[in-house]
């Protein structure tokens, strides 16, 4: 009888939970997704939310239902009335369900999401991407646009700024170190190139060159939405909290105008 009550409660509360998840997903769990990678990441997040709702309800209910239903009354002593050492149906169902659930979420959304992510990397590799060489040093991001001869992109205040055209693949080449000063690279440390609105970060490892290709899909800027920014996501010393730059995603024509402006006003 208790199993029936538990089952009914489970179904009802799962319904409530799924409705809550649906509401949250409709509002956008990631607050803003401004690139293809953000969409892949958010899709995985949303799917997992729907998938775990019945499990969360089950386990939370299973923890607290016995406390409510089977607790000893005040002053009651003695052993429990029913003693069960083993229940093969329950145990094997639990093991098999948890096994298959875990294999399933590994296939989707982990492997499928990675597949989408990798496809995006290779598909856009041959499509004349915009190339931005990102140098990470303590404690500055330096953006170099080799295709346009811009060695350091800065805004009117001289601050490093990343400007990208919407809907054009951009290949970020990530290296550690300052291209303008000669020094022993042994002092370089690990940074992490993170754009919250792009749903992805990639580590910058001294001595290594890494690439990641992203397609921004929304015209926006840090001024409009502070999640649209570049921030270092790996502790890199005292200046780590300040290793932030603005980011602007603009139309193709605005991007061309900006490039022209940058070339007319070189950073040094």
């Amino acid at each position: 009888m208790d199993i029936v009550i538990f089952g009914i409660l489970w179904v009802l509360l799962t319904g409530v939970a799924e409705w809550g998840v649906h509401d949250w997903v409709m509002h956008g769990t990631y607050y803003i997704t401004a690139s293809n990678t953000a969409v892949i990441s958010q899709d995985a997040f949303n799917f997992l939310l729907f998938a775990i709702a019945p499990i969360v309800v089950f386990v939370v209910l299973a923890i607290f239902y016995p406390a409510v239903r089977f607790h000893a009354r005040r002053g009651e002593t003695g052993e429990a009335p029913v003693q069960k050492r083993f229940n093969p149906v329950m145990v094997w169902t639990w093991i098999l369900v948890s096994f298959f659930f875990n294999v399933f979420v590994w296939v989707h959304p982990t492997a499928s999401g990675l597949q989408a992510f990798w496809n995006a990397q290779t598909a856009y590799a041959d499509s004349n991407p915009l190339i931005v060489h990102v140098y990470g040093r303590q404690w500055e991001w330096i953006y170099d646009y080799p295709q346009y001869g811009i060695s350091q992109a800065v805004d009117k205040n001289g601050e490093d700024i990343l400007v990208l055209p919407v809907n054009r693949p951009v290949k970020f080449i990530l290296t550690s170190g300052d291209p303008f000063h000669a020094y022993d690279s042994r002092v370089d440390v690990i940074h992490s190139f993170w754009i919250p609105a792009f749903g992805v970060k990639w580590d910058v490892i001294p001595g290594e060159t890494r690439t990641i290709t992203i397609v921004p899909n929304k015209i926006t800027s840090t001024a409009e939405n502070p999640r649209v920014r570049v921030q270092c996501a790996e502790v890199c010393g005292a200046g780590h909290p300040y290793m932030i730059t603005d980011l602007r995603i603009v139309s193709a024509s605005d991007f061309a105008k900006w490039v022209a402006w940058e070339k007319a006003h070189p950073a040094d």
Partner: peptide, 18 residues
Amino acid sequence: ITGLFVADVPINFQVHNT
């Protein structure tokens, strides 16, 4: 259960080190 999210690689790309 939140570990499930962090273990999912595309989600991890966003939530790692946050």
